[in-house]
Design a protein around this nucleic acid. Structure first.
Lengths: 130, 130
DNA sequence: CAGTATCCTGTTCGATACTG
DNA sequence: CAGTATCGAACAGGATACTG
């Protein structure tokens, strides 16, 4: 993985920040992809559950407090479309459907860690200064 | 900064994932803080602009394409409340108001880089497998 | 310059009920 | 078991006009 920093690129004037959108399009798209799979009320709980282990629909419903079928179904579809979740149909009788993370999905772990780290540091600073 | 990993903690069974909410409350709150300042249509553009340099209201309006006064004002207030943006009133005549990032705000840089890195890797994998 | 106020639209999410 | 269908409330965000 290259050592790319948005803000470094901006400071190096590789990017002319007249307008934040003048970032290379791929950068914007890439960040958006990430934010898309992390945003909303249920995506994080779902990913968290699947990071723990692959699960079937009903197990996820039991695992994630208060989520409805509608929401779980909807979010899983989106996550699948975005390539972070795989829907695996096992040809048993009756068929068994399992949801699991793709490699990309698994690697969200690192992102989440970084986010958590920031959040904890931020809370420290925030509460100490008050 | 400690080397804390949500998912590692879960796997170590420090956390009993019957329910994702059984994560230490601080973890959930911390991650939420981070997501709150990154989510929505305008927060990222605003932070991006301020990472580049501190700016006044009107300059931000020119810098960020298509943002309205209403949204800029609203988002800046939220970011200030969340401790990532500082509103500085300079006692010139007339007064000059400048927005700048707090230390926490600045350190979002690292988070953004990690998010970008994931996004780029994800796109690679996603498009290569298709 | 640095915002507010008002009104309006589209999207997200919850509740509830239903299906092969 | 693994979802879908329908309805309605809440909220995010846009357009436009206005203010000290």
């Amino acid at each position: 993985m290259k050592d790319i920093s948005i803000e470094q690129a901006i400071k190096d004037e590789q990017i002319n920040l007249k307008d934040i959108k003048s970032c290379p399009v791929q950068f914007v798209l890439a960040v958006n992809d990430a934010l898309n799979v992390l945003t909303g009320k249920w995506k994080l709980p779902i990913i968290g559950a699947l990071l723990f282990k692959s699960m079937r629909f009903s197990e996820m419903k039991k695992t994630i407090p208060k989520i409805t079928s509608r929401m779980l179904s909807k979010e899983l579809k989106e996550l699948e479309l975005n390539g972070v979740v795989k829907r695996v149909v096992d040809d048993t009788t009756p068929v068994t459907i399992t949801y699991q993370l793709t490699d990309s999905g698994m690697s969200l772990n690192g992102v989440l860690d970084k986010i958590l780290e920031w959040g904890l540091g931020h809370r420290n600073e925030f509460f100490s200064q008050a």
